[in-house]
Design a binder for these strands. Structure first.
Lengths: 154, 154
DNA sequence: CTCCTTATTTTGAGTCATTCAAAACAAGAC
DNA sequence: GTCTTGTTTTGAATGACTCAAAATAAGGAG
């Protein structure tokens, strides 16, 4: 027989990274990580929606807790666009930035031109010890420039 | 007799700028703007607290409405630090950035090194029309580096 | 494999920031 | 001064997230 879906290579890799981060490997945690890999820039609610079909009784509180644990462990990155719930993504450690469409909310990653975090240094840090620079570009995505109605919004 | 406090020069300037922005000049609007000049980086709640002693029956809903109107008119700038309520400031149009202490929440303005908005250009805008780059530097303020207890927090 | 300890998730309720809607009110053009 | 329309008040509701206690499951010990 073929391997069960539970032991495919992506799942295994995920389980290993959770373990390596010092966290217990649980079914909901793996499911959240997979949902996040398939849907970058998801809100806690969206993650819950993606995970529910797979894992029936998953509460949204659990998802919040899992997301907080994974973020704390450095497996997930969180960012808070203005006027939107917090969004999460698996792409971590590369100090990339975000392009946000102020009309439809679409998000695109942009590589950091400069390099490692903090990719920028403030002109006058006023005694602050700066760890990271969060850069968010606000604009209109191509669809929102072209069309008057945001039909492309999911 | 001397001039009444209501007609001092700051108030007059404020009234004029509100008018110039196409908005009606009202007592609460002027009070919010003054509170914001005296307390940059204030949340809606803090503004309400500052305005209340002067203007007894000001509702927090009114403050939200006023802040939204002033922000829309370009007289006030709003920004949303992660994990904090939205903050407002009068310093507009100069594309400055913010230094945020991740421990005590202290905020400092930093002048933009580059220049006019958007002060940065993403490496690959992917079709987005970028208007502005929001830059937030996360770090620890001097007090939070020096002391183990954040006694300086107001 | 089974038990045990402790981390994690569920369940249920609560909080904070913010928004909505309708009625009362006030700015400022005439 | 009056009238029109933009503002604020009043009262209620929503969304995003957090807290706490009880139930459950991960994974090391035996």
């Amino acid at each position: 027989m073929t391997q069960s879906p539970e032991s495919d290579s992506r799942t295994d890799t995920l389980r290993q990274s959770i373990r390596a981060a010092g966290l217990r490997v649980t079914v909901p945690r793996v499911a959240v990580l997979e949902a996040l890999q398939d849907n970058p820039h998801s809100s806690a609610e969206k993650v819950t929606d993606k995970v529910r079909p797979v894992l029936k009784g998953t509460s949204s509180q659990a998802v919040y807790g899992i997301l907080a644990a994974l973020t704390g462990a450095g497996l997930v990155r969180r960012f808070d666009p203005a006027g939107s719930p917090a969004l999460f993504e698996c792409r971590v450690g590369d100090n990339h930035h975000h392009l946000v469409c102020i009309r439809c909310g679409a998000i695109k990653d942009v590589d950091c031109v400069i390099g490692a975090a903090p990719c920028l240094t403030p002109s006058d840090a006023s005694g602050f010890a700066v760890f990271a620079a969060e850069v968010t570009f606000n604009g209109l995505c191509r669809e929102c420039q072209d069309f008057s109605t945001p039909e492309h919004i999911d």
